[in-house]
Nucleic acid binder design. Structure first.
Length: 568
RNA sequence: CGGAGCGUGGCGCAGUCUGGUAGCGCACUUGCAUGGGGUGCAAGGGGUCCCGAGUUCAAAUCUCGGCGCUCCGACCA
């Protein structure tokens, strides 16, 4: 491809709208353009990257035996009413009406449609197991789209759905997708990690996420330093302390703590470690009453764990000030445990404390020397907190470390969550009707491109991993317009590499060297060849990988073999 | 949905407070020079100043209403 005829504009200045580096670089390099909030056009150069990612995905999905199909973006509301998600999904689901005032949705995902296909097409266990996938545009009306294509409203997703006669087959199919995903992300050239996850809104029992590791990632993932345990922070269990609780030594005392509403204030005021205080959070329960959740002062509540407890409203909702007042007799900031009437869940780490500090249920007052059995009988032990770095791994080996990641894939075992309400049934060997077991498997295709840049860039621009680079080689002739020798060598080289099937971007613009180098680095083409009078005098060309600091020279006649060796 | 901010050629911004000829840098076009790290000189093209209403002799500028966007939070995967 000749750059002089390629529709691309690079930009020196960073657009004001872009916050994260991948978004900035995608705009500056001319990969995408914004149409409206969370809506992006993919320009030709960006599309080349996208298609490389799609190709890898297709090859591996096909290799895993899945069948590609395409389903409509617009879906009738009836299907969503059948599955129950018409009411459950919330405002992220874009609902639209056609000219007859019939309700439709812009598909954020396709469980309903594929289940409809399954119940029509799959009649017999002989047709199972089967896996369908598509690569297609999804729409989720995000409250706050941000970070360019990383969290867009419209994005491209690879979604796959498998159907099985029984759980064992589902587990096999899930395992096959886990392996396919591992191959896919390995082939993109990105550093990634598979972690255990909570299955969230889509529902189901078992699920894992694939994260591209990047400092700027939105998600925290935890892993053991001693084995292969890895989980989303939300899904990581906190083990109860192994040491027994010390005996109570202090008497309970009420102390004045004017204005100390937060643990931080309290710890500073009383000159006590936050880890010797407890936080009491009042949340809405399921039957009108409130529930108290207790975590150690230096720990944070894990919302996901909390809302799974019996009697706690899901989604978790903190009680407002009036409800707190009614339940405790005081305002948030001074809520405590002694004499509290409602149900109390206490985190294991909080339960391990003796002689701790908590609110006194009285404004500007706290209690010290509080002890569980003596002062607060009847608290239910629970795992309530977010794990922190250094916690013992739930796997029993090693300690937890925390890293940042960008979620690019998610696989679920859905079981019969959709097939039962939507009556997707087949006949088994005995001729009995039985509901299908189902798995679903997503990859954020457009997000992979942004994640690749987050993980691979420097101050000059993008550094594409070879497998998804828009071009493999950028050919930079210097003084092309004036030097016949440079022109002849360039034309010959471009033809030779192109004929060999290598994707070459030839910068044949009448621009000065600095401009060409700067653009080549911004665009992030991994391999750069420079053709110049200086080298040609000695019969040599110049090569530099985007990650290299220095160029290397080699004989001009060996260009093809030299490059091939580097393309791997 | 709550808070903050922004809207002026394609991009980045000044001008708005204190009303009076719409400006700068980048990009783009043309010419000449230059040719190993965003080069120089010169000449050009391109703007309903987000929209609407109002005040005024006069509105980018003041007032009111609306729309759009960005960031933080809540929310969500």
């Amino acid at each position: 491809m000749r750059l002089s005829h390629y529709p691309i504009n690079t930009v020196k200045e960073t657009p004001a709208e872009a916050e994260v580096v991948s978004h900035q670089l995608m705009l500056r390099a001319g990969l995408i353009r914004r149409l409206a909030a969370g809506l992006y056009s993919w320009l030709p150069l960006g599309l080349r990257v996208l298609q490389k990612v799609e190709r890898i995905i297709r090859e591996e999905m096909n290799r895993a035996g899945a069948f590609e199909l395409v389903m409509p973006v617009i879906q009738p509301a009836e299907l969503w009413q059948e599955s129950g998600r018409w009411t459950k999904y919330g405002p992220e689901l874009l609902r639209i009406k056609d000219r007859h005032q019939r309700d439709f949705v812009a598909g954020p995902t396709h469980e309903e449609v594929i289940t409809d296909i399954a119940r029509r097409e799959l009649k017999s266990y002989r047709q199972l197991p089967v896996n369908f996938y598509q690569i297609q545009t999804k729409f989720r009306d995000e409250v706050r789209p941000r970070f360019g294509v990383m969290r867009a409203r419209e994005f491209i997703m690879k979604d796959a759905y498998s159907f099985h006669l029984d759980e064992e087959s589902l587990r096999e199919g899930y395992r096959a997708m886990y392996d396919a995903y591992t191959r896919i992300f390995t082939r993109t050239g990105l550093k990634f990690r598979a972690v255990r996850a909570d299955s969230g809104a889509i529902g189901g029992d078992v699920s894992q996420e694939f994260h591209v590791l990047a400092e700027s990632g939105e998600d925290a993932i935890v892993f053991s330093d001693a084995d292969d345990y890895a989980a989303n922070l939300e899904a990581a269990a906190a083990l109860p302390p192994t040491e027994p609780r010390p005996a109570a030594r202090e008497e309970r005392r009420k102390v004045a703590t004017p204005g100390a509403r937060t643990i931080e204030d309290l710890a500073r005021f009383l000159k006590v470690d936050p880890a010797r205080c407890v936080k009491t959070l009042i949340v809405e329960g399921t039957e009108g009453a409130v529930v108290a959740l207790v975590v150690r002062g230096d720990h944070e509540l894990n919302q996901l764990k909390a809302q799974k407890l019996p009697g706690v409203a899901s989604p978790l909702q903190l009680a407002n000030a009036a409800r707190v007042q009614a339940a405790t007799g005081t305002e948030p900031g001074y809520v405590g445990l002694v004499g509290l009437e409602c149900r109390i869940y206490a985190d294991h780490a909080a339960l391990a404390l003796a002689d701790f500090v908590c609110g006194a249920n009285e404004k500007d007052q706290h209690l010290t020397g509080v002890n569980w059995d003596r002062d607060v009988p009847g608290a239910t032990p629970a795992d309530l907190r977010k794990v922190v770095e250094g916690d013992p791994s739930p796997s029993g080996r090693g300690r937890l470390k925390i890293a940042r990641g960008i979620e690019v894939g998610h696989i679920f075992q859905l079981g019969r969550n959709y097939s039962e309400p939507m009556k997707a049934l087949v006949l088994d060997e005995a001729g009995r009707e039985t509901a299908l077991y189902m798995g679903c498997y997503g990859i954020g295709v457009t997000r992979i491109v942004a994640a690749a840049i987050e993980q691979n860039h420097d101050e000059r621009g993008i550094i594409w991993p070879d497998p998804i680079a828009p071009f493999q080689v950028v050919l930079v002739p210097l003084n092309l317009q004036k030097s016949d020798r440079v022109r002849a060598a360039t034309d010959r080289l471009y033809a030779e590499l192109t004929d060999a099937g290598i994707e070459v971007l030839l910068d044949d613009r009448d621009a000065r060297p600095g401009v060409k180098f700067a653009d080549a680095e911004l665009l992030g083409i991994p391999h750069r060849l420079v053709v110049a009078e200086r080298g040609l005098e000695a019969g040599r060309l110049e090569y530099r990988h985007r990650r290299d600091r220095e160029s290397t020279e080699f004989p001009a006649g060996e260009a093809l073999s030299f490059i091939r060796a580097r393309l791997g």
